[in-house]
């Protein structure tokens, strides 16, 4: 069982959270109707050994969506950020490059 530190509520049990998928992929603008870009965002996933960027929602807490870096080998939670923060957008960009 994981313990995840919510930036707002503090360290909590996994049972309060819901996994929300890969955070390295973000939706294109709605106005962008390009099928390939949407296909990429919705279906294509990396499966890294090591750091994985992912969304979790603190569903039974403050209901914030979090941007989490988790090691897929050790399950260590390396960092958590509110998903809506601009820093997250930058981190996502970095993660995609890496």
């Amino acid at each position: 069982m994981l313990r995840i530190t919510c930036p707002f509520c503090g360290e909590r049990d996994q049972v309060e959270f819901a996994y929300g998928g890969d955070a390295a992929s973000v939706f294109p603008d709605l106005a962008d109707a390009d099928l390939d870009r949407w296909t990429d965002a919705v279906f294509m996933r990396d499966n890294p050994r090591g750091d994985h960027r992912e969304f979790w929602q603190h569903q039974h807490g403050c209901r914030q969506w979090l941007y989490v870096v988790r090691d897929t080998v050790t399950h260590e939670i390396k960092s958590t950020l509110p998903a809506r923060e601009p820093r997250r957008a930058a981190a996502t960009h970095e993660g995609r490059k890496g």
Partner: peptide, 13 residues
């Protein structure tokens, strides 16, 4: 509810 919050917080803050 969860999906709407997801959109607001991750895609359209």
């Amino acid at each position: 509810m969860t999906f709407l919050e997801y959109l607001l917080q991750t895609a359209w803050p």
